[in-house]
């Protein structure tokens, strides 16, 4: 079917997706076909092993082994899926909490490999972790329960500057991902919102954040204050800062841009992706 002139999106399951996604799908289909060809070759060699010379089998198997299509995917702790599983990333289904966790694992591994010891001082957390802090802020009595001990301990690590950066993405209104980095050295809560450019220059909560970020940010403040009290070492009050982030011009990129903002912060040589 011909693409209408000036079209910029396509509809998939009632969701508008950018037209360039078609090229990604085409690339995936090409890789998928190649994967099938490779799998067929592996199977054929196994079936005909006794009919070919050992040297030839070895040569072919060595060549085929260079493409580890079904190997564990880097950064995905539980995944042993092949390329077929990557179709998940060609739809809006890849914008969920579990996917944010996958991106977090990738950044964690990158920091471990190339971060020159940064990982020791960086705590990358799941969006669920932020939800626990918000729950504790809403019911302070549960904050002191045994099941929230790990959150209190993390607060103490920030207070004692054992952990210098507490970072991740948080969900707002079940529709938007926002990056954050709590910097214990500068006592700053940095927020990167791909929908909301703002400049922070005072110690109060910026007006732009009031309408939907107030709850998580107040929860962070509650947690940090409780940690100061517990450590009996009152620290400087946390102020707010902007985490540089690409501004989105679509309805699907906030999670990717939030993860990219975190990566660019910890790896200054990385640049923010273009919208």
């Amino acid at each position: 079917m011909p693409v209408p002139t000036n079209a910029s999106s396509i509809i998939v399951s009632n969701v508008y997706l950018p037209l360039w996604l078609v090229n990604v799908w085409k690339a995936w289909l090409w890789v998928h076909d190649l994967h099938i060809l490779w799998a067929t070759a592996i199977e054929w060699v196994a079936d005909h092993e006794n009919e070919i010379s050992a040297a030839h089998v070895h040569t072919v198997q060595t060549a085929l082994d260079k493409l580890i299509w079904a190997h564990k995917i880097h950064g995905f702790c539980d995944s042993t899926a092949g390329v077929g599983a990557l179709t998940h990333y060609l739809s809006p289904n890849c914008l969920a909490t579990t996917d944010m966790d996958h991106y977090r694992e990738l950044l964690h591994e990158e920091l471990d490999k190339y971060g020159e010891g940064d990982l020791e001082h960086v705590q990358l957390v799941s969006p669920d972790y932020v939800n626990r802090i918000i729950q504790a802020c809403a019911s302070p009595e549960i904050y002191w329960s045994r099941n929230y001990r790990y959150i209190r301990e993390m607060g103490l690590k920030l207070n004692g500057q054992i952990t210098l950066y507490f970072a991740g993405v948080m969900n707002v209104n079940n529709s938007h991902w926002v990056a954050f980095i709590i910097d214990a050295k500068s006592h700053t809560i940095n927020i990167g919102d791909s929908q909301l450019p703002c400049t922070v220059s005072n110690r109060g909560l910026p007006d732009q954040w009031h309408h939907y970020l107030e709850k998580p940010i107040c929860a962070f403040q509650f947690w940090l204050q409780q940690s100061d009290k517990a450590a009996k070492c009152p620290g400087t009050a946390y102020t707010y800062g902007n985490l540089p982030i690409t501004q989105q011009c679509d309805g699907s990129s906030c999670g990717i841009f939030a993860q990219n903002a975190l990566a660019a912060y910890f790896f200054p040589t990385l640049t923010l992706v273009a919208p």
Partner: peptide, 16 residues
């Protein structure tokens, strides 16, 4: 030796 509590949470979605 203490009550075991699991926290459950629905997957959250974000895009816009």
């Amino acid at each position: 030796d203490e009550p075991v509590e699991f926290h459950a949470q629905l997957e959250q979605i974000g895009g816009a």
